[in-house]
Amino acid sequence: MKCILKKFSYPLVFLVIALILTQTMCEKIVTPSFGKMCTNISLTNQQNIEKKIIYLTFDDGPSVTTNKILDTLKEKDVKATFFLIGNQIVGFEDTVKRIHKEGHSIGLHTYTHKFKRIYNNNDNFIKEMKHCSDEINNITGVNPNIIRFPGGSRKHLNNEFLCRLHDENFKIYDWNLQVSDGINPNLSSNKLFKEATADNDSISPIILLMHCDYMHKNTCKALPEIIDYYKQQGYIFKPITEDTPELYFPPSKRTLKSIWDIMTSK
């Protein structure tokens, strides 16, 4: 290590140490970052932070439950975002049409949702997203470019992959508030409500993760109360669009490692 450090001036050594400390701090961040840049380790680009905005998002549809959620959204006059799985669309084409027709936004949640396949390599991941987009386009005439990583982008997104996804015109949306229906769909509606409304004072805007597969009946039951709560708190409900600032977990430390490798190779 001493031999390596002799190659650099003290200011440069301090810079490397500062970068390492910065990365250590980034790894401790629990909430995701808003951002569009792919050249910075800590990505922040918060917009409309002063406004109380909430994005209701539903993963793993379409299904019979999706239609019930659409009924509630229509009744409450609220728009939301549905991240759909491509191979579940067959038989629910009318549901996909309804999502689009009623002014909600549609996102991509891969074609198969099979982790081993989609995360085997980056090419597979992109193919899955494009396949899902094609299926939606066949029904609605639009090609969505907003995506959500199954399980979230943490551990799967690094700076290089982030830039590649941006080159493919994809925009990434994780979440900063969630209910546990994806882990345990049998949780009571009261428990789901408490999770959906907990610790929200420090978050703005909110991207709330929920699910709408066939087993998420209690999510349907909790949804009206969740919507009423946020209306009473003065929140504006919006669907995610390509103009919505991205929200994704900080990329992995591979970026920092590559900087270290470059510097120590000189």
Score class of each variant (00 low, 15 high):
128 E>F: 11
245 P>R: 01
70 L>F: 03
200 N>A: 07
42 S>A: 14
82 F>D: 14
102 E>R: 01
130 K>R: 15
108 L>V: 11
63 S>D: 09
7 K>E: 02
37 M>F: 08
37 M>G: 03
58 F>W: 02
16 V>N: 01
137 N>Y: 15
220 C>Y: 12
217 K>F: 13
79 K>D: 08
177 L>E: 02
86 G>Q: 08
230 Y>A: 09
111 Y>T: 04
221 K>L: 14
134 D>L: 14
167 D>H: 03
126 I>C: 05
181 D>W: 03
260 W>K: 07
129 M>C: 15
188 S>D: 12
165 L>P: 02
67 N>A: 10
107 G>E: 02
12 L>S: 05
199 D>Y: 14
28 K>Q: 14
93 E>Y: 11
78 V>D: 10
67 N>H: 07
261 D>Q: 10
255 T>P: 07
22 T>I: 07
239 P>Q: 07
139 I>T: 11
250 P>K: 04
80 A>H: 00
208 L>Q: 09
219 T>C: 08
141 G>K: 06
258 S>D: 09
119 Y>D: 08
159 N>A: 09
243 D>T: 13
152 G>I: 12
57 T>S: 15
113 H>I: 07
205 P>D: 02
182 G>C: 03
261 D>S: 06
39 T>V: 12
251 P>N: 12
33 S>P: 01
176 N>T: 15
86 G>C: 11
102 E>L: 01
247 L>A: 08
91 G>Q: 13
266 K>T: 00
23 Q>E: 07
77 D>T: 13
124 N>R: 08
52 K>I: 03
66 T>L: 01
135 E>Y: 10
66 T>W: 00
177 L>A: 14
221 K>C: 01
159 N>F: 07
73 L>F: 00
33 S>G: 15
233 Q>F: 00
12 L>W: 05
137 N>W: 11
248 Y>L: 15
103 G>N: 12
26 C>G: 01
147 I>K: 03
1 M>A: 13
218 N>H: 13
136 I>C: 03
110 T>A: 05
140 T>N: 11
85 I>N: 03
26 C>N: 07
97 K>D: 10
122 N>K: 14
74 K>P: 00
20 I>P: 05
36 K>Q: 12
39 T>P: 03
46 Q>H: 10
13 V>E: 00
80 A>S: 12
115 F>G: 01
174 D>I: 15
185 P>A: 06
47 Q>F: 04
229 Y>L: 03
146 I>G: 00
30 V>C: 06
201 D>M: 12
31 T>R: 11
99 I>S: 06
266 K>G: 01
119 Y>Q: 13
213 D>P: 01
54 I>T: 10
224 P>C: 11
19 L>G: 07
52 K>M: 05
87 N>T: 15
107 G>M: 08
55 Y>S: 10
264 T>S: 11
1 M>V: 04
204 S>N: 15
223 L>F: 04
167 D>V: 02
3 C>P: 01
101 K>Y: 04
91 G>Y: 09
253 K>Y: 11
81 T>I: 11
33 S>V: 03
33 S>H: 13
261 D>A: 02
6 K>H: 04
72 T>E: 07
171 K>I: 12
48 N>H: 06
123 D>Q: 08
80 A>I: 01
129 M>S: 13
